[in-house]
Design a protein around this nucleic acid. Structure first.
Length: 430
RNA sequence: GUGGACGUAGCUCAGCUGGUAGAGUCCCGGGUUGUGAUCCCGGUUGUCGCGGGUUCGAGUCCCGUCGUCCACCCCA
């Protein structure tokens, strides 16, 4: 045997045993986004590296150390997308879709970040992305949050809560940033090494340090919410009022900042206590300057990204992950003639009962083995076709999940008999 | 990138202070010449993650390496 090929670290297979939760989430999402008037868009997984550098920010962790970047045969620097917003905005620009138009878009697919894998964090992971472009808000901000809230409700996920904040405009944020830097400089001796490093690059990130020794200093720092420009303050107040009016509870977290540079004004995050340290399930915000920054017609935008693996994990934990649907009928065949006739019989049954699932015994096996497989398949019913039955033009029908006895049925009436037993079995007991 | 725990049969795991591997499950056959889940009997399955080292002898000790999980970090 040759040496076994390893899977790539942090890139997982979704096996049939787990697929039920994914399919449920997928179906739920498609129905939901349609009911809010969002349209699907599909964009490439690979883009020019400069797109992400310009959109996300050169000095963010994602760009600095997490991107899968490579040169193609022509020498261009390409990158596997670490997030979806940049590519979608690029698509709007490339296809001339701006010029004052509005777009409500959704997109789902794999993202790639080279991080050390742990629970809820993988190198290839799937995100659901929603983007509303051309709408300045705050009404659309509120609706987007309501959409996410409705998804949790429909999926039966309860262990999530909402935090919101406003980052203001780039100008007000810059002014606040200067205040923050001078505050932390006064207390520089008390800062840990991480925070000192951030003081240069991204001082806002000091605010969500998890180091308990930093809490006192952070608590004394000026608050972003106290230094917003008047328009942003008004925008944020209107968002809060809209959420109040539709009964969505939230917590204002003045220290909620984002790791991607393009955000402005509204930011929000749905967090959970059920996933260990990867607690963000869905997060997003407004990016009014991004499109102009990428060379497009200046257009406001707001959106969020949801980590599908994390949602699936919450579904599983909540016991809302349905098992894969089992077969309805397992067909047992025995003897040379009956085995040969089995395929044709089951093909006919599939014509007559297209909604039912038939599992024909393949690969032979004696009766004992075939019934064992029938049992393990989860089928409600076994249909038995032996040479003896075939000669008499009948098949035996045996319920596998109750004590009702086995009966025989002429082949032309078999489909009707199967349907009758299955619907009878599905009906609640009187 | 840093730290901790762990890698033994397809799967879940046992294997005490070193003496050349074991259970359950799964799968297959039989008990039941054509009837599953239960029960009984039998059978197949291992480069003990990989590479070095110590030793008469290593699954067990040491070093390295790869992987998994968790935390830091980061984020969805």
């Amino acid at each position: 045997m040759t040496v076994e090929i390893q899977p790539i670290r942090g890139m997982n297979d979704v096996l049939p045993a787990e697929i039920g939760a994914w399919q449920r989430l997928d179906a739920c999402v498609r129905e939901l986004v349609a009911s809010y008037g969002y349209e699907e868009i599909r964009v490439p997984i690979v883009e020019h590296t400069t797109l992400f550098k310009r959109a996300i920010g050169e000095y963010t962790d994602v760009v600095e150390k997490e991107m899968y970047t490579f040169s193609d045969q022509g020498g261009d620097s390409l990158t596997l997308r670490p997030e979806a917003t940049a590519g979608i905005m690029r698509a709007l620009i490339s296809n001339g879709m701006l010029r004052g138009q509005r777009h409500k878009l959704w997109c789902v697919g794999p993202m790639f970040r080279h991080e050390r894998p742990q629970k809820g964090r993988y190198r290839q992971f799937n995100q659901l992305d929603l983007e509303a472009v051309g709408l300045p808000g705050p009404d659309v901000d509120a609706e987007l949050i309501a959409l996410a809230a409705r998804l949790w409700r429909r999926l039966g996920i309860e262990r999530v809560r909402l935090e919101i904040n406003s980052l203001g405009t780039p100008e007000s944020r810059r002014a606040y940033r200067d205040m923050l830097v001078s505050y932390f400089r006064e207390h520089e001796s008390a800062l840990d090494s991480d925070s000192r490093r951030r003081l240069e690059g991204n001082p806002l990130r000091i605010l969500d340090s998890k180091n308990p020794q930093m809490h006192a200093i952070i608590a004394g720092a000026p608050l972003l919410t106290d230094h917003l420009d008047p328009e942003s303050r008004e925008h944020f107040a209107a968002l809060c009022a809209a959420l109040d009016s539709i009964g969505i509870s939230y917590r204002i977290n003045p220290r909620l900042v984002r790791g991607l540079d393009y955000y402005s004004r509204t930011v929000f995050e749905w967090i959970t206590d059920a996933l260990g340290s990867q607690d963000a399930v869905c997060s997003g915000g407004r990016y009014d300057g991004l499109i102009a920054q990428l060379g497009g017609e200046p257009t406001p935008g707001v959106g969020f990204a949801m980590g599908m693996e994390r949602v699936v994990e919450l579904l599983v934990q909540a016991g809302k992950a349905p098992p894969g649907r089992a077969a309805d009928v397992y067909v047992v065949v025995s003897g040379a003639r009956a085995s040969a006739a089995g395929l044709g019989l089951v093909e006919r049954l599939r014509d007559e009962l297209p909604a039912r699932r038939f599992d024909l015994n393949l690969g032979g096996g004696n009766f004992k083995a075939q019934f064992r497989r029938a049992d393990r398949s989860g089928a409600a019913l076994a249909v038995i076709l032996g040479d003896d039955e075939l000669a008499r033009g009948v098949a035996a029908v045996k319920p596998l999940r109750n004590e009702a006895g086995q009966s025989e049925c002429p082949l032309p009436e078999l489909a009707a008999a199967i349907e009758a037993v299955l619907t009878g079995a599905a009906a609640p007991a009187e």
